[in-house]
């Protein structure tokens, strides 16, 4: 579903990504972790072309992201993305946040988009909040709306960039629960997170990054059993014993 092949990227003369290669098969859940500044966010933004790459190639569902002929908006519409800081549109009501993409990008009717939005809100337990504005909701609620917004476009895969790291501890689980449910339904997911509980529960593989390189790409059992690289071992022990 997602193929990342020998990808390198520079910001000016600073190399953020070096020769990154990994694949995510349909229905697979891959967790990406690594120290701050290692390039996780950058890599995940390259997957749907929010950031351009200078070397290598990335294909989503067989479509090359870095091919100038690719209709990027069309492809992005089918790749759901959830951000660390939610990024709901603050001037739109919750239901409008869920319907605008469907109407303006997919061409659905207002009624259809509204109905689908309400169904998704119900699913994430926020139906009663449809007419509120993002600023009136807690972080956990906003992030659940953000997931629902991504789902409203009927994505073929989902990208998450540290979806719980801006949340107060008591709100983390309400968001993780939604994500676990998605994983169980067979959604293809690439998740940057340090929530190792989540990784243990639903991940198929764990990718560990350090200084712009993928230093470990292993099945979950293997990664948590005994990571090969010393950096991954150090990182794990820090994360698990903090």
């Amino acid at each position: 579903m997602i193929e990342i092949n020998k990808v390198s990227k520079w910001y000016g003369s600073f190399q953020v990504l070096t020769d990154c290669t990994t694949q995510i098969a349909k229905g697979e859940v891959v967790v990406v972790c690594g120290p701050s500044g290692s390039g996780k966010s950058t890599l995940i933004k390259c997957v749907n072309g929010l950031e351009p790459i200078q070397q290598g190639n990335i294909a989503v569902n067989g479509t090359a992201i870095n091919d100038p002929k690719t209709d990027l908006p069309k492809l992005r519409a089918r790749v759901g993305m959830v951000f660390q800081h939610f990024e709901l549109f603050p001037h739109m009501s919750i239901i409008k946040n869920l319907s605008i993409g469907q109407v303006k990008v997919l061409g659905r009717s207002e009624d259809e988009a509204h109905a689908k939005g309400m169904k998704l809100l119900e699913r994430v337990g926020l139906k009663a909040h449809a007419n509120k504005y993002p600023g009136e909701m807690s972080g956990g609620q906003q992030q659940r709306v953000a997931i629902a917004r991504a789902l409203s476009m009927d994505p073929i895969c989902m990208l998450f960039d540290e979806p719980t790291s801006a949340l107060d501890p008591e709100m983390i689980n309400e968001v993780l629960d939604v994500m676990v449910e998605l994983a169980h339904e067979g959604m293809t997911m690439m998740v940057v997170t340090h929530e190792m509980g989540f990784a243990r529960k639903v991940a198929n593989r764990v990718v560990f990054m350090d200084q712009g390189k993928i230093v470990e790409d292993a099945a979950k059992e293997e990664f948590f059993g005994q990571p090969r690289s010393e950096r991954a071992q150090q990182f794990l022990s820090k994360i698990l014993h903090h």
Binding site: K45, L50, P73, R76, R78, F83, K104, V105, M153
Partner: peptide, 22 residues
């Protein structure tokens, strides 16, 4: 925030639509 632009684009908006709606 730069994230708002990313969010608009990630939803499938073109650059023009991202400006217009977001």
């Amino acid at each position: 925030s730069r994230g708002q632009r990313y969010a608009g684009l990630a939803l499938g908006f073109t650059e023009a639509q991202t400006y217009r709606y977001v």
